[in-house]
Amino acid sequence: MKYILQRIAFYVFTAWAAMTLNFFIPRMIPGDPISALLARFQGQMNTDAIESLYVLFGIDKDASLWSEYVDYWKQLFNGDLGLSFSAFPTPVSEVISEALPWTVALVGITTVISFLLGTGLGVVAGWRRGTWVDGVLPVTTFLSSVPYFWLGLLAIYVLAGPDSFFPSSGGYDAGLVPYPDWAFISSALQHGILPALTILISSVSGWILGMRNMMVTVAAEDYITVAHAKGLPERRVAVAYAARNALLPNVSGFALALGFIVSGTFVLEIVFSYPGLGFLLFRAVGAKDYPLMQGIFLIITITVLVANLLADIVYLLLDPRTRKEG
């Protein structure tokens, strides 16, 4: 339990650091793009909204940095991320909450599948080292070097099209309203398959290589020799002894990979015009919608931290050495 509390403390600290970073970035922007944009919406905004943007972006030159910082936190705790410029006057939190489920579903499901599949294949590749399976490795190396978005472009070029089963863009049919009925869900699935496959193909290679190398490393441990000496069935040695131990570093490597996969997925969403956070960020960048950009960064950071915490809990369940005795 102590371990989990430590990890939670660390993630709270990281979240604080990310939000503080978020506070300072707009204050370091040379020039003043915000004021110009504010001027454009001057007539349509109420004073509260303008006030909140002032706090977020530090335009109010009279206020001290510290009082701005305190106000910034107050606002965050109220869930107020300001108003979006590009979707004016919708609050940023609302815009993000529409896009978040799409990204979480797409990344979450594909990452879990990719991890399980890649780890499983890695176990086989590591255990059957020296057989034909080794021939697959150069292919996986190549695939893991291909940028997600380019693979997405290829997928669209080869598989999607006006007559194809796979739609080339969007998250669901334009004629439908997001509502949990069968027509909508099936349409969402149909739109999700191609982006999901693309993520799967690009990310699975990394897990295969990582797990394969860990299997090779673990296979030289004494307890593997002991397991063989005990006359255990091959399967038991490979799974309960080798793979079970090789899995641990792979799970803790999740933290690094997750940020990378999220980044890759963001760009992929752009390619597929998928209605998730990545595509939203792309549109925000294009429209210079700073409040939205900042909000997306905050939300995605917190989501990644939560996912990391889940990975830590899984690790805790897998490795008895991190559990406290008694």
């Binding site: 441990e221 004494d222 307890y223 020799t225 002991v226 000496a229 079970r244 131990n245 641990l248 008895p320």
Partner: peptide, 12 residues
């Protein structure tokens, strides 16, 4: 085996 430290599987 030599080295009892590593002869036992740490996760079981």
């Amino acid at each position: 085996f030599q080295g009892a430290m590593n002869s036992l599987n740490p996760v079981h």
